[in-house]
Write a protein that binds this DNA or RNA. Structure first.
Lengths: 228, 228
DNA sequence: GTCGGGAGGCTGTAGGACAGATTTCGACGT
DNA sequence: ACGTCGAAATCTGTCCTACAGCCTCCCGAC
């Protein structure tokens, strides 16, 4: 998946060690020098991998003591494992349904006028991109994100971003989606977004959540027409 | 927040550079050697910070070219900014409401018998910990996580883990919560969990979601009695 | 048996070196 | 004047050595 960088191989190798030796949380893994020797690379490279492992919450480094397993990677690393694209896509839609519907609801309740302006800007950008037959994935995402920003909830926003990273990864690893869209689909996509934005404008939380759910269900159908 | 590691300061400093100089996505930031010189540290330390930045999706390193800003950092970095603990805690509860209620619903629909056994194990562990007056935060989390695992949805699980990382970070940066709990609170906490688990056992999705929402609302009240 | 101290191991950090990739820019040919 | 090509400058990726400060563990003293 990620070749070319030695540190990536180190990352994978260390995860392999944790898996194969069934290291449980709290256990120590070999020292940086030992790992470097085992993998045939320098200690600096192993350190880079360990920094990422720690940043991912899998290990934890204690100065003078060593690196320790924090969580079981078999669970934590599900995201890093090759997965069935169809199932993964369906899965992300399940998350988006609850998360984004609630985002729309909260945005309808709390949006400031500045945030409303941001949403409007994002919507018009999306419209321009769609009408000029661009893929417009980024513009679509920016609109959804402007809505998430309007929740005025940092936890919501970071969770949202995290989910989007997954979506991107799945799409990148999976199918190419930018098929040509017939005009009626483009019109429908625009209408769905407008319904969401309008509900947020008039501050109707239930309508906003409903419109978002409808939009996502339509999006899923367009992505995977053969249904659930 | 986490001092003692030079690499953390490097991370913060680089973020500061991106912010102050208003670097937009695609722009190059100073070379590793230049950054090391600016911060007065070795290049290896700067590299560690850059590895984490890249792992966080904020920058991207291109061999032979440099490190580049990837996404709008002013938005992306909301999570790394010091935040008001009370507002942040309320925020995470908003996320947990929708995410975990849906997890309970999906778990009720899909749990295998093995997953049900895992949930039961986690519940009895939690009961044991609570009855012996332990803080039992970890056991509590393990039960919630066992439920999330039963959704059989990788996206759900990773999103769940991400949210938990935030909760941990906020709690670590904020107040100490392990106040002494009177017996009736312990009994209530156990009952709430049992209601969730039972609903999953008899595969009643709505009841599971409702029980989870109730449990979280009670938890929030216990954490912040002075209400919303 | 207990307690303390020391030795060894480990991470954190520094600095230097080189290979290979990329960008830049000037020289050269047309 | 313009396009093309190549060389130099720059940068990341990798390796090496070294040492300070911290942690663990074991051994010896009591």
């Amino acid at each position: 998946m990620n070749e070319g960088r030695l540190a990536d191989r180190a990352y994978t190798n260390i995860v392999g060690i944790i898996r194969e030796q069934k290291l449980v949380p709290g256990e120590r893994l070999p020292s940086e020098a030992r790992l470097a020797e085992m993998f045939g690379m320098s200690r600096g490279i192993v350190r880079e991998a360990l920094v990422r492992l720690a940043s991912d919450g899998i290990t934890e480094a204690r100065r003078g003591a060593g690196s320790f397993v924090k969580r079981r990677p078999s669970e934590r690393l599900a995201a890093h494992v090759p997965i069935d694209t169809i199932a993964a896509t369906l899965g992300t839609y399940e998350v988006r349904f609850v998360l984004e519907a609630e985002a729309a609801r909260l945005a309808a309740m709390r949006r400031s006028s500045e945030q409303m302006a941001e949403i409007d800007t994002a919507l018009s950008r999306l419209a321009a991109a769609l009408l000029s037959s661009n893929p417009a994935h980024d513009e679509d995402w920016q609109l959804h994100r402007a809505i998430a920003l309007s929740t005025a909830n940092a936890a919501f926003i970071t969770t949202f971003d995290h989910m989007h990273d997954q979506v991107e990864r799945i799409l990148k690893a999976g199918v190419e989606i930018s098929r040509s869209r017939p005009p009626e689909v483009i019109r429908a996509m625009l209408q769905e977004h407008e319904m969401i934005v309008d509900a947020i404008r008039v501050q109707d939380p239930d309508a906003a959540a409903l419109a978002m759910r409808w939009h996502l269900s339509q999006g899923r159908k367009r992505l995977m027409p053969d249904g659930l």
